[in-house]
Amino acid sequence: MYYLGLDLGSTWCKGVIIDNKKEVIATSLEKTGYSFIETSEKLLDELFKKSSLKRKDITKIVATGYGRKSIEIADIIKTEIMCHAKGAYHYFPEKFILIDIGGQDNKIVHIGENGEILNFKLNRKCAAGTGAFIEESLSRLQVPYEKVKELIEKSDKDITIASFCTVFAQTEIIKLIKENEKVENIIKGIFNSVATRVIEMETLHGTVVLTGGVIAFYPFFKEILEKKANCKVKVPPYPQFSGAIGAALFGLNSEFHKKHQLVL
């Protein structure tokens, strides 16, 4: 039996198939684009191609993320915070703080030792400290994301970009450009700023797990966050697919919805 999870996010859509041993069989990733329906179809095509499975082999499809209610193929709909928590707990079955940095949202979730959500918070209605902030800043600097790691390794200064607002942060970047600051130091400053936004949201202690697109695209961010927050950070396999894996796991364990008869 196989379970398919779709995490239809603000910037990227992610798809996963797991088997009944909770092993990931296939993943797929698409830019969100303008239609969640079309993007979901592309995800499914790719998943079936990679796994050699067919639609009839899938026991349950579970959708999560901003687009979760926009598609009709899902058997179950779950909120992304629940799915991210479940996906992360699958790899780290203990009490921990989950930080998910996505395209437009930062989520911080306190997860109990049995995988239950104790508390959670999202960033304000503001893109500061999210993937969108990084994307916008790199675009301003005309640096493709493939070059970021190489540049960061060359940086020799810890710059801080202090602005709360993504737009005002750009004016700080312009000031740095004007002062002929090295591009690698400005980029480091951008990631330092993301880490600062995270630690402003919550005091980090104990086990901290980091998921989402930012850590998937920029694995070096783990060290930056560890240094800023003064804590050890764990990253699960497939960090960008954590929500989709959690969704698929909800498919596997859909008794919760039967019990509460909720359609969310």
Partner: peptide, 21 residues
């Protein structure tokens, strides 16, 4: 100053959290 989608997601999650616990 209000984000419909963010509020909706937060509220739905909060209710799920309460029911699960």
């Amino acid at each position: 100053l209000f984000s419909d989608e963010q509020a909706r997601t937060s509220i739905e999650t909060f209710i799920e959290q309460i029911l699960e616990n």
